[in-house]
């Protein structure tokens, strides 16, 4: 049943996805409102789907697909938060495709829910999953914002009057969205990694830094910290910030993909 709701959500997200592609070429107030409503409706379905999983009584996010579903939901929540503060749907250009992609995979089929037998503390695991996913969502939004910043900067530099009328908010607003997401995400990401380490130590008794999952996670965290630092220290933005953000985003993707290779961080027992 949970999967059915998720597929409804996917349908709604699809409409938002179209917006993401159209918004780059034209500005339509009506269309951005449709996208917003579709996204909100999608979130309702999505929420129902997640609640059903939760009510099933396990720490059910401990499956790759359910994890992806949760991450998509959190990213969407982040997007809505930004909309509430800044009244702009433009981060959707980056957020919507990613959310759609995650939901699409999650809605593909039902995975057997298997708790790893090693995990002794379910509370720590739940905390780890939640914290790190909020960190991921923040990183995604920050990455999106830095791309939009670059785009808006180009437009302002091109000085064409037509390009000044665009769906993008003011440069400094985009900058703020990116920076605040970055700052907000950092503690979550850090705490997420710490709780993850606690879970791993409790299960294995030690941390294996050569494990690809851990290695990539540490790398991602390092890039994340570098971003926060360069921004705070010398106000890097624009092109340089976009390069760093892309790097962090790729590291995050790699860390995520490492789930499939890691010896210690896997959901399904094999």
């Amino acid at each position: 049943m949970s999967l059915l709701w998720l597929r409804f959500a996917l349908g709604c997200y699809f409409i938002s996805l179209i917006y993401a592609f159209v918004a780059l070429s034209r500005t339509s107030d009506l269309f951005s409102r449709i996208a917003l409503h579709a996204a909100s409706l999608g979130m309702v379905f999505h929420f129902v789907s997640l609640t059903e999983l939760f009510l099933a009584g396990h720490v059910v996010w401990a499956s790759v697909h359910n994890g992806e579903s949760l991450l998509a939901f959190l990213s969407m929540s982040f997007f809505m938060l930004i909309y509430a503060i800044y009244q702009t749907t433009s981060p959707g250009v980056v957020v919507f495709p990613v959310v759609f992609f995650l939901t699409f995979i999650a809605a593909a089929d039902e995975q057997p829910v298997l708790l790893t037998q090693f995990v002794s503390s379910k509370g720590w695991l739940a905390a780890h999953i939640f914290l790190i996913f909020i960190g991921y969502a923040a990183l995604l939004v920050s990455f999106g914002a830095s791309l939009l910043y670059l785009l808006q900067e180009r437009r302002l530099k091109a000085k064409k009057s037509s390009s000044l009328i665009s769906f993008l908010p003011a440069l400094e607003v985009i900058d703020q969205i990116g920076y605040r997401s970055l700052l907000l995400g950092f503690p979550f990401m850090t705490l997420g990694l710490i709780t993850g380490s606690v879970v791993a130590i409790s299960a294995y008794g030690r941390l294996d830094f050569l494990d690809p999952k851990i290695l990539l996670s540490v790398l991602m965290w390092a890039v994340y910290m570098l971003m926060v630092f360069t921004r705070w220290n010398s106000g890097w933005r624009g092109r340089r910030a976009a390069v760093l953000a892309t790097f962090a985003f790729v590291a995050a993707l790699a860390a995520w993909a490492a789930n499939y290779f890691s010896a210690i961080h896997r959901f399904a027992a094999s």
């Binding site: 000085k159 009057s161 037509s162 000044l164 624009g238």
Partner: peptide, 19 residues
């Protein structure tokens, strides 16, 4: 051309005005 510097000269302003 520097990142972070947005300079509009009188001709650029005209373009913006023409709309």
């Amino acid at each position: 051309k520097l990142d972070g510097i947005f300079a509009y000269d009188i001709d650029d302003l005209q373009q913006a005005v023409s709309s």
